[in-house]
């Protein structure tokens, strides 16, 4: 059995365990038998109406952010890049809040109005950040990109605060949403993001070999026969779709896209043919577990899941930064 097969088995097993823990633990403990035995209606309702959609949504959001992070990192050759550090999540939030603020609903888009505006916000921010970073420093050093992401993130954050202040009471709930949460969303939210998760992930997966080539730089990828311009565009769009849809349903949850690809790479290598899929699976597991911690650690009060991911993610960010800098110094 080769390394990749083991990686898939381990990741799948982790995901199953995470889902099981996610649905069974809580103020009411759900026995595993509830899956097939619906005689206990209370337990069955909690499982299928509350816990399951929450776990699935957490999984989809985590998977989206992780695979997007892995792709951004490969494309930018920057281990610190993820939707959050690049400011793309903030862009998506602005898109989402604008939709809520103006009560926008485009008839053809229907319920998809929110995620689509979120994606547009994400994509615009992505292109602006990369364009600006390139303007500052043609070689696009790691720090330049992250600093640009912070600048744009802060600016977009203040735009958000302004809009919230203007709306008064009714959008106060948005603040909670901004901190990131997957609670009380229900099945309709899953249906809202699922197509985008599938499309975005598929676009990235189509570019797995190109991402491998781009790890050696755009020029090298070009020499190897990659149509760099088109592939880069595809990857940025794919990442924006994933980020936009994730933010639309759960707000800004930081660092998942940073921690998961990093851990996955550390354990199974940086070959994108496997890295993307494995990050997708592990991202789902991580966010399900983080959400479980968020709602149980100071029960009955719930923490926003973004607090937990930041709690884990920021130190990992610091560690990666340290490692890369040391490597550069040698």
């Amino acid at each position: 059995m080769n390394k990749a097969t083991i990686a898939y088995i381990v990741s799948a097993a982790t995901l199953i365990v995470a889902v099981w823990l996610g649905v069974s633990i809580g103020t009411v403990k759900i026995p595993i038998s509830t899956f097939w035995d619906s005689s206990d209606t209370t337990a069955s309702n909690i499982l299928w109406k509350i816990r399951m959609p929450r776990v699935i949504l957490a999984g989809l959001v985590g998977a989206s952010l992780a695979i997007a992070g892995a792709a951004f990192q490969g494309l930018l050759k920057n281990p610190l890049a993820d939707p959050y550090t690049l400011g793309v999540s903030s862009g998506a939030s602005v898109g989402a809040v604008v939709t809520l603020f103006f009560g926008l609903s485009i008839p053809i888009l229907g319920t998809y109005t929110l995620p689509i505006f979120s994606m547009i916000g994400a994509a615009l921010t992505m292109f602006l950040v990369i364009g600006f970073a390139k303007l500052v420093d043609r070689s696009m050093k790691m720090e330049t990109i992250i600093l640009t992401g912070i600048i744009f993130g802060s600016f977009l954050g203040s735009v958000l605060s302004l809009m919230i202040a203007l709306t008064g009471e009714e959008l106060r709930q948005i603040i909670g949403w901004l901190l990131g949460s997957v609670s009380m969303r229900g099945w309709n939210y899953i249906l809202m993001v699922l197509p985008f998760v599938v499309i975005g992930s598929f676009i990235l997966w189509l570019n797995r070999r190109e991402l491998n080539a781009m790890l050696f730089g755009e020029e090298r990828a070009h020499h190897l026969g990659v149509n760099v311009k088109r592939r880069k565009f595809m990857i940025l769009i794919g990442g924006s779709i994933l980020t936009g849809s994730a933010v639309a349903v759960s707000g800004t949850i930081g660092f998942v896209g940073l921690v998961v690809p990093h851990m996955t790479r550390l354990m199974w290598g940086s070959d994108h043919r496997h890295l993307l899929t494995l990050s997708f699976m592990n991202g789902a597991s991580l966010l399900i577990i983080c959400d479980l911690i968020a709602r149980t650690i100071i029960s009955p009060t719930e923490l926003p899941v973004g607090v937990i991911t930041a709690f884990i993610g920021a130190p990992v960010f610091a560690y990666i930064f340290y490692r890369q800098r040391r490597k550069g110094a040698m």
Partner: peptide, 9 residues
């Protein structure tokens, strides 16, 4: 010869 950020075999 260039330096690169991620490891490949």
């Amino acid at each position: 010869l260039h330096a690169h950020a991620f490891s490949h075999t």
